[in-house]
Design a protein around this nucleic acid. Sequence first.
DNA 1: CTAGGGTTAG
Length: 720
Amino acid sequence: MPSSSMAKTLVKTFLKSPHSLKTKIQAKQLHAQFLKTQPYSPSSTSILISIYTNFNLLQHSLFLFNSLNSPPFLAWKSIIKCYSSSGLFANSLTCFVKMRSFGVYPDHTMFPFVIKACVFLKNLRLGESIHGCIIRMGLDFDLFAGNALLNMYAKFQSLQLTGGCKVFAFNVFDGMPKRDKLCGRLAQERDKSVVGLDSVAKVLETMPKRDVVSYNTVIAGNAQNGLYEEALRMVREMGNANMKPDSFTLSSVLPIFAEHVDVMKGKEIHGYAIRHFFDSDCYIGSSLIDMYANCARIEDSCRVFNLLSKRDDISWNSIIAACVQNAVFDEGLKLFRRMLTAKVKPRDVTFSSIMPACAYLTTLHLGKQLHGYIIRGGFDDNVFIASSLVDMYAKCGNIKAARWIFDQMEHHDMVSWTAIIMGLALHGHGRDALSLFKQMEKDGVKPNYVSYIAVFTACSHAGLTDEAWHFFNSMSQNHGIKPGLEHYAAMADLLGRAGKLNEAYEFISSMHIAPTGSIWSTLLSACRVHKNLELAEKVAKEIFKVDPENVGAYVLMSNMYAASRRWKEAAKMRIFMKKKGIRKEPACSWIEVKNKVHTFISGDKSHPLYDRIFQALKDLLEQIEREGYIPETNEDFHDVDEEQKKYMLFSHSERLALAFGIISTPAGTTIRITKNIRVCVDCHTAIKLISKVVEREIIVRDNSRFHHFKDGKCSCRDYW
DNA sequence: CTAGGGTTAG
């Protein structure tokens, strides 16, 4: 317990040197002592405020500040600083303006705080007038104020609030005219042409003194504005000026190499960071994670993450996003759970990073849980999150929910439009998708490369050939987007499905980039659907030219030969595959029941309820045969008898999943199944009839689209 | 006074 004599010593020491106070406790003891022994003298109160401010005790500072009728300079300065470092930038600025109205002038140490506040509040006008104030007071050569201004103008540049950069242009080009004149001119010239970020760099040149912070600020400013060459040039210049890049420099530079997918340069930076003991730095860590992830080196991302000694929310977000972007969804979800366990609060970025994992894995229950979390956290008006939700609901088979979320959005950007258009397309609502696309153009939102993939997907699944041609032409003519592989693939697919096989062949042959195996493959499967073996052989040749290991082509050809009873050729295809050691990916379906995902591989009897599933399939078969079902068995097998073939069709993974879904959910429940490859014709027919006899809606997502089965019909109208 | 992470892709 402190005695009163101790307190008195404290006061003595304090008055001699206020900064000797080392702890909050001491500050409070001092405050108590002041209350006892002295009246509220403005100057001692101000000193006390500044001490509380140094400990960032805003409430204590405020309490004292409010007791002052006419606060002296130090009190203003402290309270403004305290507001700023507590993140209360609006209060900080209000205070600053109020201080000026009291006739109190700021000093050079105050400007960095208020300028930072202007940046945070995106208040360009106030920022400019504060800059004017700095000039009028002749403090424009102050290093800290200058750095703060550099940062402010660079940030406003990235926000495209470009008016301010002219200030620097005047500074530079007018060779510093009389200050008052300059300020007057500024107001007049405000709306003249944009000078841009290079003027920020030029100011750097006129600064009498520059430190690492000045360089870092300009480097970051350039990097954030996409001026990568300039940013790197500044790094070299910084070195020439005998200043060493520090952790700030590196974390600004790394995203450049992530963007350029330049892992060698990225590794150089990583090496530099290790040599200079920056590698445990949180900021560099997340840049490194992102850089490696962008270069498809997810293992390296994980290594960096695991070696981090300190992790904040951004480190977690980075590694989660890294996993999801590299299709390591399970790991991403695991890390998300670990993040929650580690008591790190997820943020908006976390959700938009993790949501695609639910979309790809079709884990609707997880997606819904996350949606709940998002609503509770008040993140649901974030465009990134809303778009990812639209996508997730669409991919998980709930197009109505996707549409609802889209309609709830206040503001639609290109990505959210594209997400809903793609969703509708995958669910076979081609016309709705196209009318939304037109709506988007009407709203003045420019489509990009991806939007057109969605458009062609819509045309493809609805068989809208003419519309597709129209969009294919207007894509380059009206929007200057060159067709890429994905567009060609979608167009080829569309022509093929529509049975225009020769048109498709011509189309692919006349592409301005070399067609890939996968583009030819779309035509090959169209040949199978339309039973054109002759063209198929021609197409297969093309495929094997560019991609001799294309599994799908071998399988398809083998099946087509078998279907026309040309067993020898069929066998030849299988022998080729064996020789090359390539294997067909096993067919696999999965279904969510009671928040658990059940996976079925075709022919797999290992499910604990297999006996009941088999029995259910047998019962269903009897029921649908009464509805007129005839198994289509001519395609896949040739050396087994008809009765056996029927049972072999049983083993298709989607049927196992479907039967399991029927026996383990209450009557009437919608069944959602996901499959890794396309549904076969026989299963498609069977599931249509099953939807009728069990009176349920059955939604199957294959690798191509959604099929909504209901009352014996499918939403694809047998066109897929 | 300066730095890092996010949504759409047959």
